[in-house]
């Protein structure tokens, strides 16, 4: 494990929302320059409750509601960062981050570079993302590939409450702009991939044991969530749990790597694993063409070519907008992952 425990204190069981809330609470208590802002994040505490209680505890100038303008939220956060604050803006759904693209891509990501570090953008953009919740076209998207393509930004995606808190604290403390995408399908429990079976809660998951105090999970470090010999599976967010459950059901000795940070990528862990297993499956919810899986595939091919015993496979969302009623045919669930694993392992 790569986490750095500092003043972690007692451990308690949290779901992912509670862990994210705790991360902001811890950072607002430690650093008066940390402010949280966004649509409905203040008095109401956020549409997913991620900022619940923060305004009551830290006041309206530290946790506040904003007008409905993503351009404004991002631009204002950048200006606050230039002043010396450490803003944590929320975009209510990642599907609504596009109005803020110019501020993110042209401004936050380039500010340090273009000013030769005269000005920086130490901001952490939180946004719920991903499908599996009947969210249809504009409450299900996984836009990470748009941002991993932008130089100057880090992209982080947790898969457990423990990682969510530790990574979010690390992101807030980081002096570079960080996009922190929260897989909303697993806010309340790890998803096994079977939409027609009862939902699980975080209650019996080891990743739900979360220290109450301050700790970091280092950015840029992947986590091997299941060691194995037969195949390396690269995934992140909700898919970590869908993959783990599918592998268990199929009885395959797969090595599952939760990337946790997409940029900068933990290439060493990936390379070491694929060289060991000789096979690689990449799984993400985002659409296929030019998705982050394409970069992963290229990296593995370039670094592990002589160790590969089968073509690298990708199980991803299809190249369509996210459908509503046809969600479970779209979602990269156990059937699609299982089919790809059988193909990779057939000889």
């Amino acid at each position: 494990m790569t986490e750095m425990v500092t003043e972690a204190g007692a451990t308690t069981q949290m779901n992912m929302i509670q862990a994210i809330n705790s991360a902001m609470d811890v950072m607002m208590a430690r650093d008066p320059n940390v402010v949280v802002m966004g649509e409905d994040v203040g008095y109401f505490g956020g549409v997913f409750r991620a900022t619940a209680g923060l305004q009551a505890k830290y006041g309206k100038t530290r946790a506040f509601d904003t007008p409905i303008t993503e351009i404004g939220i991002m631009g204002v956060a950048i200006g606050m960062g230039a002043y010396g604050l450490r803003p944590v803006p929320e975009i209510q759904f990642a599907d609504y981050i596009y109005p803020a693209l110019d501020q993110l891509v042209s401004e936050a990501a380039r500010l340090r570079y273009r000013s030769a570090a005269d000005f920086t953008a130490p901001i952490t953009i939180r946004s719920p993302y991903g499908g599996g919740i009947f969210g249809g076209q504009t409450h299900s998207q996984s836009p990470e590939g748009i941002f991993t393509h932008v130089s100057g930004m880090k992209t982080v995606i947790p898969s457990t409450p423990y990682d969510a808190k530790g990574l979010l604290i690390a992101a807030i403390e980081d002096n570079d702009p960080v996009l922190f995408l929260e897989p909303k399908r697993i806010y309340n429990g790890p998803f096994h991939g079977h939409y027609d079976r009862p939902a699980k809660t975080w209650a019996d998951h080891p990743g739900a044991q979360v220290p109450e105090g301050h700790y970091r999970v280092e950015l840029g470090k992947a986590s091997v969530v299941r060691p194995g010999e037969a195949v390396t599976i690269l995934c992140y967010g909700t898919m970590v749990h869908v993959v783990a459950n599918t592998v268990e059901e199929m009885g395959i000795d797969a090595e599952i790597i939760d990337l946790r940070t997409l940029v900068p990528l933990d290439i060493e862990t990936i390379e070491e694993s694929v060289k060991k297993t000789g096979r690689c499956l990449i799984v993400h919810e985002a659409t296929r063409t030019s998705g982050f899986g394409a970069e992963l595939s290229a990296q593995v091919q370039e670094r592990c070519f002589y160790h590969l015993e089968a073509p690298i496979e990708r199980v991803t969302g299809f190249d369509t907008p996210y459908p509503h009623s046809l969600e479970w045919a779209y979602f990269p669930g156990p059937v699609r992952i299982g089919t790809a694993l059988k193909k990779i392992l057939k000889d």
């Binding site: 631009g75 204002v76 200006g79 606050m80 230039a82 803003p87 042209s106 401004e107 380039r110």
Partner: peptide, 17 residues
């Protein structure tokens, strides 16, 4: 920045801070 008007909300954020 070469991107027009982006400095407008940034100036507001600085003033708010």
């Amino acid at each position: 920045s070469g991107n027009l008007a982006t400095q407008y909300p940034q100036a507001v954020g600085w003033a708010m801070a």
